[in-house]
Design a protein around this nucleic acid. Structure first.
Lengths: 123, 123
DNA sequence: GCGATTTATTCTATAAAGTATAACAAATAG
DNA sequence: CTATTTGTTATACTTTATAGAATAAATCGC
């Protein structure tokens, strides 16, 4: 028999590298995290240029895994356009992000010669 | 016409999340980075349990992409056993690792509420 | 030398993640 | 009521991630 966690798909899969970036962008964007904004944020903050289809494919997967939730945004104040699908991270998603962070920082600490200048200071 | 970089397969692919872990372990293990040691290191340092086949599949891909190199180790001082295939990171691999690190740290810095205690101190 | 044991790698197959392109949907201004 | 704008969905395909079984090569004891 499956545990509650397994039933709802919250078992120990790992965050893919792009999934992690998208998740981080969703946190950064707060109340305005939706497809196009995520795509723009990835380009500006992560030097990552992808199509909008790539973003949506990933958010759909993240939602199915319970790492984010989505709701439909209200009518736009701007002219034209379909309503936004707004995303927010779940507690489970936040934990996944923190675990990933924890593992990497732990490894980096053991390899000081790898570190960039940016890492010489507290995050 | 392809650039030199493209010809030898060193263009802008991104490091997969498991590829990054394996690469980090290879750096950590220094002169003793080979299949089984990498697997053991992943378990001990990254809470990641995988089969040896998973490790080898990944190192093969990393080598094909020019991120690591391999050579055959000398005969063992211990009893029995085939010779080890020893890995070391290339300059290109090191750069890939640093870029990945740079992007993530940059994002984390913008999301202070995500950070764990470990991140309050310099890495 | 040769089989048993040990330590390792390679092969093969499949699932999951990453990604692009194109099609579709819905809001609103005129 | 249709053209324009802003956005999401659908589909297809490639690359990564992963397990399991098969195979290889070193050495020990006889």
């Amino acid at each position: 028999m499956l545990s509650k966690i397994e039933q709802i798909g919250m078992s120990k899969q790992h965050l893919g590298e792009f999934e992690e970036l998208v998740l981080l962008l969703i946190v950064m964007l707060k109340e305005d995290a939706y497809g196009l904004a995520i795509r723009k944020g990835l380009k500006e903050h992560a030097e990552r240029t992808v199509t909008i289809g790539a973003v949506h494919g990933t958010v759909n997967r993240l939602e199915k895994k319970g790492l984010i939730e989505s709701r439909l945004g209200g009518a736009t104040d701007l002219r034209g356009g379909r309503r936004k699908r707004l995303f927010n991270i779940t507690a489970f998603g936040r934990r996944a992000l923190q675990q990933s962070q924890e593992v990497k920082v732990k490894l980096w600490r053991q390899i000081p010669e790898l570190s960039l200048n940016i890492l010489q200071y507290p995050i």
